[in-house]
Amino acid sequence: MRGVLRGLAVVIEDPQEARAIYKRGFYGKFLLKDKVKLDEVDKLESPLVLALYEALYLAERGILEVYEDDKKIEIEELRKIGRENIKNFDDIYLIYKHFRDLGYIVKSGLKFGALFSVYEKGPGIDHAPMVVVFLEPDRGISATDIARGGRLSHSVRKTFTFATVLKPSNEVALIGFRWAKL
């Protein structure tokens, strides 16, 4: 399938391909539509917008080819564009891939003030996504980080997750936190 790079996102213009990619696991977002359920997809004619890390994941899996104008963008070039424009892109991509490879649905966490929101069944179906906060690998952890994470998740779910990438192994490490009533 074919996507077009426009800045830092990739657009699937063909509605049929857009629907097919979305159905593979809630990849991307239909223009002007949010939380589309799988049984609602066939009615849509909108283009699909993929975040750069989603496009990279699909490209690595051989599902998507990315073009800019009529020039094909190779996978390494796509990665380079991410690295040069988005802070911690490589580590964030590893975390994205970790969840996706395990079969989870990963969406932006921006509206929760976090890196990702992670679903088992899908946005609009799971009522409480896992809120994943990114911890830069070379940074330490502070009391404020943890309390802030707790605040993000209070309205959603009582546990929250920190994700980081251990160096030099590049292993993704997840730590779960929960407010404790002692």
Partner: peptide, 27 residues
């Protein structure tokens, strides 16, 4: 249990654990 202490001595507790996720069976 992490005991978070504010700079004036107020304590809040959070439990913490390493998370190993299973494969998502719902998908």
């Amino acid at each position: 249990i992490l005991a978070l202490v504010s700079n004036d001595g107020v304590v809040t507790y959070y439990s913490a654990h390493k998370l190993k996720l299973p494969r998502n069976i719902h998908v």
